[in-house]
């Protein structure tokens, strides 16, 4: 057990478990975000407040950050080792039949990482560490008016385009990543694997479409 993560398969196991965990987080995050489509900003702000202050969620947040960092960390280690495994490449690029997006996991990962950084600066750090976010008052309690911030950002065309593109790349990452995680976990079955692949596609669609319609709706209809 002790040295499982020093092996290549152990690192892959870590990637898989963390990947599934992050997908689950994305689904929760999407649930909260969809509240912004409501007429009042209150539901979103209250939910955001809950997510930021509930003690359970706060503990969970540590795991979440850890998860992101480890997923990136192990991903990089594996990628570097994989590059080193073929110091002299081929003249003719490989055209074997493969899971297409599997070839671009590191590339999509980099884009997602850039998005994540901007995203954290824009929302998380602003709300947590600066006073840049305005305060609103519901039922005598103070809340950060994050909804206003979101609505303001989503009125900027460049931001909307960047945001949507990021999720398109996210979908590429998930299309391979989701089913790949189960294969890495050792789950490969004549009947269940095709179902897992379908669930992966559905999850990816929910996440991508869900996160994409929010800025579009805000931009055009709010």
């Amino acid at each position: 057990m002790s040295n499982i993560f020093t092996s290549s398969i152990g690192k892959k196991l870590m990637m898989a478990l963390l990947g599934i965990f992050l997908v689950l987080f994305l689904l929760v995050h999407l649930g909260v975000n969809l509240l912004i489509l409501m007429d009042s900003r209150q539901a979103f702000n209250v939910a955001a407040h809950f997510m930021a202050h509930n003690i359970v969620i706060k503990v969970f947040e540590i795991f979440l950050f850890g998860g992101f960092i480890l997923h990136i960390f192990y991903g990089l280690i594996l990628q570097v080792k994989n590059w080193l495994s073929r110091p002299i490449g081929y003249n003719k690029t490989n055209n074997s039949q493969t899971s297409f997006f599997s070839k671009f996991m590191i590339h999509t990962a980099v884009i997602i990482f850039i998005f994540l950084t901007i995203h954290m600066i824009d929302f998380y750090f602003k709300s947590k560490f600066t006073n840049a976010v305005e305060i609103v008052n519901y039922n005598g309690k103070e809340y950060h008016d994050l909804a206003a911030l979101v609505l303001q950002k989503f009125k900027m065309p460049a931001f909307v385009i960047g945001y949507i593109l990021s999720f398109v790349f996210m979908s590429f990452h998930l299309l391979h990543g989701f089913q790949s995680a189960f294969q890495t976990l050792g789950i490969n079955h004549k009947v269940y694997t095709p179902i897992i692949k379908k669930i992966g596609i559905i999850c990816t669609l929910i996440i991508t479409v869900g996160f994409t319609i929010i800025p579009l709706y805000v931009y055009f209809f709010k």
Binding site: I9, K12, K81, N82, L84, Q97, S102, S180
Partner: peptide
């Protein structure tokens, strides 16, 4: 020094 598996499926195909 072999690389790790990223489940691309190229091996199975070839």
């Amino acid at each position: 020094g072999f690389g790790s598996c990223t489940n691309t499926g190229a091996c199975e195909a070839e």
